[in-house]
Design a protein around this nucleic acid. Structure first.
Lengths: 298, 298
DNA sequence: GGCATTCATGAGTTTTACTCATAATTAAAA
DNA sequence: TTTTAATTATGAGTAAAACTCATGAATGCC
């Protein structure tokens, strides 16, 4: 059974646009002889005359016209595809799949996203907040390419974690709250507060693991809230306090009457890290993403 | 610059659907080694990893996924095209372009058209009444494949004419016309009539060339009319007489009060011929068209 | 009729693709 | 852990295909 190869389509197109086998051969960078052999074989394969020999001219038969219409439809698709593969090869095209292990990371990612998308017009950005397993597993499983996390797991085979952003985790209170003008607070000052956090295990909440838990003190009440927006609304209305990055609080002070308060004498200092597979660090748009991440000033 | 060949798309698709290089090689009827060499060359050509080697499994990279989506789009187009070319080769597909040199031929063609289209579902029918040159030139120029004509030009190089249908050219008059009950008429009986004909040179009108002109007699008036329908309307209203095939008059007697009258003692006997290029007589649907033409009984 | 142009063909050569044999790697079984 | 079975990778040799060169045949033009 005969197969239509790409070259067949190129030949049909070239002979049609060039008007003769000889000049088509030139345009395809082969000899007239080679092309003549090729068209003979093509016609033999399909047992179908593609061209009519009218004197020294060649004209397409009905079957040939049909093949030409296929060529004009299919060849541009292949040519476009080649250009796109070149872009993949040069790292100019792809999808950067980003995973996040902390809720406020999303606010930070938004800052990186727009300069990134502007410099890589053919690279898409996929954001993933929920993985089937943990962020590291998602990296290993190729579900994501970059993991944004405040808690890097160093020394994992095949992975690297890069610090990109320093921030301080602070308590956020409404501007008429009793704690609003404290330089810093100690754990027992939260004993009578309603503490609002994201709905994740307490081990993953710095305000617990680094502040409350060591002292054995618990807040009066622990409320869970999905979104940062809603959390801030609640705090602004005096319905509780929360722990968030300082830069996020500062930024929201335009919209809400909020005050950041240091947690402990020295504050809770954190670093946002980007994790990725070692083999991916050469991919241009991934390297660029890391670089842009470091440049973001908040 | 690297080219995407059809085989590359087949390889990407086969490895993806079969799940391994080894079984993909089987499905493509080559050895595992050949396929391994091919994929290496493909990746080298584009300088792009298409697959990730995870242990003994191969998984598509982003570029590979993209190539797969191209394969899934392009390959079915090629496969459909191949099937269509097979149909062209077997003479099951094409366009039969029919030209006509006589106006009432069209009424006759309509009778052949429907059984033809029913037996050749993939063959189109193109009808052409006006050619830049004559019908024979249209055959030579490949503008038409079949010429329907009552006046065949035998012995033309590369062409054949086949008689397919006998008919008699008769005078048609309204049923209250003075001539309506004549067995036949002689030329001078038209001397006081209004004769309605198609707008073509009188040499091509049988009623002139075979009846009036030899006797030197002319009708009282010669009116031109484009369509058969309108001609019959005029005759039915007693505004003139016309010359048409007898079968056409008989057929229209349901709708119009018409009577056919023989032209001359022996009538004008004509044959409809189909002309075509000799090289085309083997094309199945053209042979079939001729055969169906002979079967039409009117 | 010569002359230039175009396509076709056969023989020989180059290039490409393929196979065979085997190594290397990996996952699972013993 | 070692064995075993399965998978991909590689190198060398071979088969097939594509191409070139030289030339023939047909056509259209001056």
């Amino acid at each position: 059974m005969a197969r239509i190869e790409r070259m067949h389509l190129e030949i049909v197109r070239a002979i049609h646009t060039q008007g003769s086998v000889t000049s088509a051969a030139d345009s395809l960078h082969v000899t007239q002889s080679a092309l003549s052999h090729s068209i003979r074989k093509l016609e033999d394969n399909f047992n179908l005359k593609i061209w009519r020999r009218d004197g020294k001219q060649m004209h397409l038969t009905q079957g040939g016209e049909h093949l030409l219409s296929i060529a004009n439809r299919v060849l541009p698709q292949l040519e476009r595809a080649e250009a796109q593969l070149q872009q993949f090869a040069k790292g100019e095209r792809g999808t950067l799949r980003v995973g996040m292990e902390c809720h406020p990371c999303y606010q930070w990612l938004l800052k990186v996203a727009s300069p990134f998308l502007r410099s890589w017009p053919n690279v898409d950005l996929d954001v993933n907040q929920k993985f089937a397993f943990g962020g590291v597993e998602a990296l290993y499983n190729q579900d994501i390419d970059v993991l944004i996390t405040p808690d890097p797991l160093k020394k994992l085979k095949g992975l690297v974690f890069e610090p990109v952003f320093d921030y301080e985790q602070v308590l956020v209170v409404n501007d008429s709250h009793p704690l609003h003008n404290q330089d810093h607070i100690v754990p027992k000052q939260l004993a009578n507060e309603v503490l609002i956090t994201y709905p994740v295990p307490v081990e993953r909440l710095d305000v617990f693991s680094l502040f409350l838990t060591p002292s054995g003190i618990l807040p009066k009440q622990h409320k869970l809230m999905e979104t940062t927006e809603m959390m801030l609304q609640m705090v602004a209305c005096g319905r509780g306090v929360a722990a968030l990055p300082r830069w996020l609080v500062i930024e929201q002070q335009d919209h809400f009457p909020l005050v950041p308060v240091k947690l402990g004498k020295h504050g809770i200092k954190k670093k946002l890290h980007l994790g990725m597979r070692k083999r991916d660090i050469d991919i241009d748009y991934i390297a660029s993403f890391i670089e842009l991440s470091r440049l973001i000033q908040i």
